[in-house]
């Protein structure tokens, strides 16, 4: 697989899990938009940057999974910090279980072809 193909595949895999990862990171600690992008990068998710994450964050707020809180700062600009709502925590729990079942199934499938499927 070429690096380009690898990148595309990574993007496709992440597409279905990015909102869950964002919710998980916000459940650990509330963050503003750019801070969340940085945390996703630090986690090695390469989420596509602010242009992808910020609209998705806005959708999650529309769905009631996160809520924002404006924090005034005496030294810097005011910040809109996003945190997970009770509905968001509930949804994250459901998504986590679904993901674990999915990963278990995929792992089991791949384990049957650990030699690359050529043997």
């Amino acid at each position: 697989m070429t690096p380009v193909e690898g990148g595309e595949r990574h993007t496709q895999l992440l597409r279905g899990a990015l909102d869950m990862c964002m919710l998980a990171l916000l459940a650990k600690e509330p963050a503003h938009g750019y801070e969340l992008v940085r945390r996703l990068d630090e986690a090695g998710l390469d989420a596509g940057g602010y242009g992808t994450v910020y609209p998705l964050l806005t959708r999650m707020r529309r769905l009631g999974l996160v809520e924002d809180e404006t924090q005034e700062s005496p030294s810097g600009p005011r910040r809109k910090v996003y945190k997970v709502t009770p509905a968001g925590h509930h949804r994250l729990g459901a998504w986590r279980q679904q993901w674990q079942r999915f990963v278990t199934t995929v792992d089991a499938t791949l384990a049957d072809t650990s030699g690359g499927g050529l043997e």
């Binding site: 801070e35 992008v37 242009g51 806005t58 810097g76 910040r79 809109k80």
Partner: peptide, 29 residues
């Protein structure tokens, strides 16, 4: 503004396609 306070310029953050970004943002909101 919060990002700029951490040294990241808005143009670098959003990228060159601001219209596309704004469209996605409005759709997702």
């Amino acid at each position: 503004t919060a990002a700029a306070d951490e040294g990241v310029a808005a143009a670098d953050l959003v990228g060159p396609d601001v219209r596309g970004f704004a469209r996605r943002l409005a759709d997702e909101a």
